[in-house]
């Protein structure tokens, strides 16, 4: 029930984001939308804490809880933009992602696997948390990248309409892309390192054909590309924004593809 309340708060926030967009960012619409999103994150966190309390497990087990946790991390990523003024408006892209993840999570059911996983413990918790923070960073970079490209397009088309007024400044968005990518890349790399160390320590070998491994390496590659294209002059900000905007949907699509394959083999999330 609390997940549904959180979802409703996110939906309310999204409606206000769009109303604010239609008003060209004028008025208090964005502040209220951000407030509703914050309330959604609080309720959502409470719901996941309740999950842990109820089942005695971290909310990483099972696809439903995992997606919900990822949604929460992305929501927290939005809250991290609170000091960025207009930068908070990345919520208009992030909140739909959060809503989509939370909706799928609710529809799949928010129960853990019937059997506890054999790699429970601090390593596992840290590994998954860092990976989710990395993914959250990529989501924020994706949202900022999209808005960067929108604003760049508006400036190049020399329009000063509602979209132009609503969309945050280029430099703010570029800073968000950069910080999100650096944070995400760092945490995700740490997550991979932890996962590799754990596997080597307890399983002696890493199954390179494991879809999880393939997907993880791919995410790492997306980060590397999005950060790598920032090197050099010219339109590095645009290249990075574009890589972030494309990279996130690509890893979602690849995940879905791998899941189909992995489910058949019975070992993917």
């Amino acid at each position: 029930m609390t997940h549904v309340v959180a979802l409703l708060l996110y939906i309310g926030s999204l409606i206000l984001w769009f109303r604010s967009l239609l008003a060209g960012g004028r008025g208090r619409g964005t502040a209220i939308a951000f407030g509703l999103a914050a309330a959604g994150v609080a309720v959502h966190a409470f719901a996941l804490a309740s999950f842990t309390a109820e089942y005695g497990r971290l909310p990483f087990e099972g696809l439903g809880p995992s997606l919900s946790t990822l949604a929460l991390v992305i929501g927290v990523g939005l809250l991290a933009t609170i000091g960025l003024g207009e930068g908070r408006r990345v919520g208009i892209v992030l909140i739909p992602v959060v809503i989509a993840l939370e909706s799928v999570a609710i529809s799949l059911g928010l129960q853990p696997f019937s059997q506890a996983l054999d790699f429970q413990g601090a390593w596992f918790g840290l590994h998954v948390t860092l990976a989710f923070v990395g993914l959250g960073g990529l989501a924020v970079a994706f949202a900022s990248g999209i808005l960067y490209l929108v604003q760049l397009n508006e400036l190049n088309l020399k329009r000063m309409g509602r979209l132009f007024r609503f969309t945050p400044p280029l430099t703010t968005l570029d800073r968000l892309v950069r910080v999100a990518l650096v944070t995400g890349f760092t945490t995700f790399t740490l997550a991979l390192a932890l996962g590799w160390l754990w596997t080597i320590s307890f399983r002696q070998s890493l199954d390179q054909a494991n879809p999880k491994v393939i997907w993880s390496v791919m995410i790492w590659g997306v980060f590397a590309v999005a950060l790598g294209v920032r090197a050099g002059g010219g339109l590095k900000e645009r290249r990075s924004a574009l890589a972030s905007a494309i990279g996130f949907p690509v890893i979602v699509i690849v995940y879905l593809g791998l899941r189909v394959v992995g489910s058949a083999r019975g070992f993917f999330l």
């Binding site: 060209g24 400036l155 020399k158 329009r159 000063m160 309409g161 002059g233 010219g234 900000e237």
Partner: peptide
Amino acid sequence: EANVFLYNVDDLREIVDDN
């Protein structure tokens, strides 16, 4: 040119319509 945003007086005419 990269990173250059050039507006002349006619451009301004178009972009202010919404305002």
